[in-house]
Design a protein around this nucleic acid. Sequence first.
RNA 1: CGCGGGGUAGAGCAGUCCGGUAGCUCGUCGGGCUCAUAACCCGGAGGUCAUGUGGUUCAAAUCCCAUCCCCGCAACCA
Length: 652
Amino acid sequence: MNKGPYYLSTAIAYTSGKPHIGNTYEVVLADAICRFKRLEGYDVYFQTGTDEHGQKIQEKAEAAGITPQQFVDNVAGEIKRIWDVMNTSYDRFIRTTDPMHERKVQQIFKKLYDQGDIYKSEYEGLYCTPCESFWTESQLVDGKCPDCGGEVHPAKEEAYFFKMSKYAPRLMKHIEEHPDFIQPEARKNEMVNNFLKPGLQDLCVSRTSFTWGVPVDFDPKHVVYVWIDALSNYITFPGYEVDGNHGEQYKKYWPANVHLIGKDILRFHTIYWPILLMALDLPLPKQVFGHPWLLVGDGKMSKSKGNVIYADDLVDLFGVDAVRYYLLHEIPFASDGTLTYDLLMERINSDLANILGNLVNRTVAMSHKYSGGVLSDHAVPGEFDSELIDLCLATPGRVAAKMDQLRVADAIDEIFTLLRRANKYIDETTPWVLAKDESNHARLDTVLYNLLETIRFAAALLHPFLPDTAERICKQLNIALPDWDSLSAFGGLEAGHRLGEGEILFARIDIPKKMEEINKLLAEKAKAALPALELEPQSGEKVDFDTFCKSDFRAVKVKACEAVKKSDKLLRFTLDDGTGTDRQILSGIHKFYEPEQLVGKTLLAIVNLPPRKMMGLESCGMLLSAVHKEKGEEKLRLIMLDDAIPAGAKLC
RNA sequence: CGCGGGGUAGAGCAGUCCGGUAGCUCGUCGGGCUCAUAACCCGGAGGUCAUGUGGUUCAAAUCCCAUCCCCGCAACCA
């Protein structure tokens, strides 16, 4: 049954690097919504993709020694791969470097210019010459450039501007008349109070400071800045044409039902984008949902903190549906969620393995054991049946209601409420007791039927969230994925139907053991990320020759060497320095050498340093070593000299 | 006076808009069961809902006021 078109877009991912699990959350959320809408019978168009222009990409490509196009090709490929790893069912993966898109962006820009909404002026700001960047007063750090810390000076740059203020009252009215336009609601107030009410400034929509972008065709030293370029993807790819000869998809799907975006870019999607559409005289999207963020541990993911988690790594560890489940279920509707390995494993065990997996497993196992895996008539109703059946019939509607509000986590909860009820039903009806008495077999068959039918409902409803798992459940039931209409009545399974083989859906995880494994993996990863070899940078400071000559370097022979008591670092050397009197030197190198290795070696020492006490012992000089870092680990080797050199020989 | 979000059981959260028995999941303790992945089912303990024994009210987690604390606003960002 076709319930009409449904167009959902994600924000397009910026191709500056590999997306982490937080970036991936958005597309998984979008996927769950789209799959659910398809299940309900909507004709869904799900668009995602990449935003590939801009200064940053130009710079990164330069640094990597490749062209920007090569750079974005690589990253876009990686992003698409991760979207696929997450099993997302996008209908189209778009890229803003698509020539078709670039052509349309130029046409849109020209149209807005011709009708007077875009005008040429000057961008004034504080300019940092070495960084070639403009900054606002508020961005400065101590009045200096936040990038390089250098001086900034007021400067002007020619730029095109969009007349935002012209459309502001219309937008205000639209927001007021469409309370669902901006979700969650708290965000709406934020936008209205912070941006619309104080008055909109005209938006700078072109740049001359970099070239990796869509050129303004009538003024080629300008490139179209991100707003018009990136935002317009939502209409250009479905087939918008400036001349009104729109493509089929555009005619069918625009305006979009939902733009799903991160809460940080809400401003662009709820103010600039609607105004842009008004200027083009196009209908506005029905809803913009700014979803919360996924945090890791107690903060944002950050490469410098070393806590970045990537979706594909998690999938390797736990499987795609477990990761999808966590993302979809553990992130609240309007506030940020957190991801930790512990929490993830706890959810897998308690929800996926215990409640869902075990229910399917025990039911299918009993069916095979007691009825040879063949369904019979479910003709003997009994106590507890109606409660289970009623909940089955009520659940699809409840899930749909939550999904309409985009409350995905709550929708999943509804399904698990049903699964919990089914587990309880088993305890209430005690099939293993019924099985003991032949006269109860008809009732036993009914109980098993009710359970299997409940699982059929659950499989259908779970599919949008856990597509692989839903299919595996169906395989065990030996049925095709049930459609939405089949959930309007209890009794979809037929008598005489033969079940498939039972299979464990989610194995319980031994959390401490798995954690150990993960820590090992993380440590290896962290190590691999460190530079292979690090050398101390050379000193720029000069030392004059006379000062250098004052240092008295001598060859010394190790007569004895022992670890200093109560010190984990220090070794105590008794050295022959050629004077006839033993010289004692302490050196903090126990981490690198065992004392007995060094006895008899010829080393190099500076002997005219002032004596110094360490751990109560006097050290007269210093042994010289060569140091460097490997994979972040400090390495040290003593300077060992040819044993033919006599003790006390001076270096010069 | 920068802005915004938040403080509810050991953990994670809902409830706050629209006052009326403080709820869910996990964990924990006890019991039941044995079909099942030591799973499942039942019950208990655990909270002065950040503070002010503040205000409004018959009634406040919820509305008002004040105070304290945490988090983001630094791009590796959605």
